[in-house]
Amino acid sequence: MGGQCIEAGLLDEVLVFSAPVLLGDGSHLFDRPDGTQVRLKPLAGESAHWYRIVR
């Protein structure tokens, strides 16, 4: 769902939470089958887990 919102240009910022759970080989935050990457930039003055999506 998050990846679809990014594709549509509907998201400007992302707040990321993680839990220490074993997920096999790992899980991509935003899986993009076309191979393009989602670039995230930390927001100044916010927590270490709040990012702006770089377009």
Rank of each mutant, 00 (worst) to 15 (best):
A8S: 10
Q4C: 06
S27P: 15
L22S: 13
I6A: 14
L40C: 05
E7A: 11
S18L: 00
D31A: 09
R39A: 15
S27Q: 15
E13T: 10
L23H: 05
Q4G: 04
F30R: 14
R39D: 12
L22G: 03
V16K: 04
L22H: 07
Q4F: 09
A8C: 06
P33L: 12
D25A: 08
Q37N: 15
S18Q: 03
D25P: 14
G3H: 00
I6G: 12
V38P: 11
G24N: 07
D12K: 07
R55M: 02
L40T: 10
F30N: 14
L23K: 05
G35I: 13
G9E: 09
P20T: 02
A8M: 06
S47D: 09
L11M: 05
P42Q: 04
G45Q: 07
V38K: 14
A48I: 12
C5T: 08
V54E: 14
A8F: 10
E13G: 03
M1W: 13
G45V: 04
K41S: 13
D25G: 13
R55L: 02
L40W: 03
H49D: 06
V54R: 14
L29D: 00
F30E: 15
A44R: 10
E13K: 04
H28R: 15
S47P: 13
T36R: 12
E13V: 04
H49Y: 09
A48Y: 11
